[in-house]
Design a protein around this nucleic acid. Sequence first.
DNA 1: AATGAATGAGACTTCATTCAT
DNA 2: CATGAATGAAGTCTCATTCAT
Lengths: 205, 205, 205, 205
Amino acid sequence: MSPRRRDSESTAAARAERRAALLATAAEVFASRGYSATTVREVAEAAGMLGGSLYYHFDSKESMVDEILSTFLTDMWAAYDRVLDSGLGARETFQALIVESFRTIDRHRPAVVIYQNESKLLAKNPHFSYLVESQERFREMWMSVLDRGVLDGVFRADLDTGLLYRFIRDTVWVAASWYRGDGPLSADEIARQYISMVLEGILST
Amino acid sequence: MSPRRRDSESTAAARAERRAALLATAAEVFASRGYSATTVREVAEAAGMLGGSLYYHFDSKESMVDEILSTFLTDMWAAYDRVLDSGLGARETFQALIVESFRTIDRHRPAVVIYQNESKLLAKNPHFSYLVESQERFREMWMSVLDRGVLDGVFRADLDTGLLYRFIRDTVWVAASWYRGDGPLSADEIARQYISMVLEGILST
Amino acid sequence: MSPRRRDSESTAAARAERRAALLATAAEVFASRGYSATTVREVAEAAGMLGGSLYYHFDSKESMVDEILSTFLTDMWAAYDRVLDSGLGARETFQALIVESFRTIDRHRPAVVIYQNESKLLAKNPHFSYLVESQERFREMWMSVLDRGVLDGVFRADLDTGLLYRFIRDTVWVAASWYRGDGPLSADEIARQYISMVLEGILST
Amino acid sequence: MSPRRRDSESTAAARAERRAALLATAAEVFASRGYSATTVREVAEAAGMLGGSLYYHFDSKESMVDEILSTFLTDMWAAYDRVLDSGLGARETFQALIVESFRTIDRHRPAVVIYQNESKLLAKNPHFSYLVESQERFREMWMSVLDRGVLDGVFRADLDTGLLYRFIRDTVWVAASWYRGDGPLSADEIARQYISMVLEGILST
DNA sequence: AATGAATGAGACTTCATTCAT
DNA sequence: CATGAATGAAGTCTCATTCAT
């Protein structure tokens, strides 16, 4: 390993780190002000530079949100796939998916907020077709888990399955809009209570 | 009732109707494309006129959302207040509030969607301080119902109350983003199943 | 003289009166807010009607200012011509012209203000070429009076004639911007003092 | 002085120069076409750029006039204050103020024209309250000089003081509308003749 | 890598004007 | 005569983007 090669490695790594740091900043700003309401200048300022300078690192504002969202989705699906590949039963799968969802929110909170708020709009752009695909795969995954659970007698059969799906979906993701990593409840603790609420209800017994 | 008086009444009424119709159109467009991403021209086109013509009826784009949101909130709180004034127990109040929420979604779906998506941004404008106030009153109302329910032994005491509140809030309002008045389920039926899910959980017993 | 003819006469007269009243109102508004900063709606409101209604009486906003200015200029030149045709000496002509100027301001104050503020801009429009012509005739008239006065030994010969002309012109017309018909000094009294100041200076002797 | 410091100095200076040059251009255009009748695009074109580009340098069209007018007024009052602080007699103060007025016109001709034509309109905006304040201070300054002159027996006592003030004020400032720096008469020469006219009158003796 | 200045499309808004009623 | 609604051109301003330095 020549010093020269080490140099180019370290600069490449440094560049990747810089990109990641800039994207984290951008995600934070997009999440708190809204993607379309955020100006490139605001993102740049938050990163300590001037508006035009961001274009050295990224092609466009859109490419930033693109990278933010696809990174988040890739990571989320990797986690989901690990769960789905473990051969668990319906109830255990259900619980594990919810836990992974809250962990994903923990790791990618700004990205999840952006996804919640902007994906409907962004999806109109053909470049963001993967948002729609992810959404559809998400639906199939949950419907499959829920249907299996109903068949296995784990979940109630008297509820509209579509309604049930939306209930789960909304319940989990909207949490990103208020979750704070430094709050009193950890992601796993929140997940535990959510699961308990959803499975057993809130009535005292 | 003189003809003159009937005339002025009917034109005043006609004007009010026209305003309402335009606002309904605007709300639809704002809800489907996002308030800030929607251009005034798009609203005008949806109403069958040119961009500038809207300004005969409204002062600004902002005044349109303003009227849309305040009308919706006024109507919602009237319904909530009727429930709160009926002297019901915690569980019945809980159920009635959820029913009224879904009925409000039914009557004001686009407005609710706009409220969900844009209120955080709009609230930065001092003119929209009533959004924050409504949100706070909403929180107090639900916390009071939930706390009373826990005291009365109706609701579980082992759950974080703040988490419980957010769970209810999100569960109810996010429904506006997918609800369709012409869907297979009526607002009251959806409310019934939501209440059942939240109270009793989704596990089969 | 048939009643029919009397009717049409009286309606024609009434129409002319209405026009004049509307123009007086418009002149007032144009003078106080500036012609281009004044909207047609504002003029209409001051006249107790809606914006579009003015177009029954006038072709355009421009035609209003046109009529206001040309009426004023016609009247002013009639007065000037009476003076010029009286065969007075230079000093008496000078004094009489200043008196007539202040009387014109008294009769057409708003029009004079508009003329002062807007004629430079309006004159770019070929339709208002009469403004330039009036201005030139005005200059020739005063230069002739002043030159004659210098030749006759009435006015000082050691002052730049062009400067002197501008001095007179400005001194007289700018008064329109502060003159009020109901103020403590009458137009003739103001004229008298102006003449005294200009002729004899302000030093005590 | 480090090179770094020299750099930052020179760019800051360059920026200030650019601003000043743009403001000079804008003042010229505003003065010749009228502030509200001038479009931002016209100003930009006169500066060799496109309409939107001006907004890199200035917040708004209004902020341009603001800077133009306040710069002019600051400079004018500095000159007046030097005169007022010199302890001259009434007549000498009078003369010095008129000289400084014409020198101010010489240095800030477009700004003075704008001030003459637009201050009444701009003053309606609370942000431009300094225009009214300046006007009032101006009035107090002149009235004080004139009153002192009358008391000292320098100026005639038989003239209305308010009228006298307006006479002076108009006489001096309206000159901005025709003054050209490259004309045959210098600012000081014009001042000299104005003073002579006003003090001694135009009658030959 | 970053700056600073400029671009140009497009947004919101104003307003003189028209016209059916 | 007047109203009320709409038109459409034009104006101010914003902002993603480019590019020479």
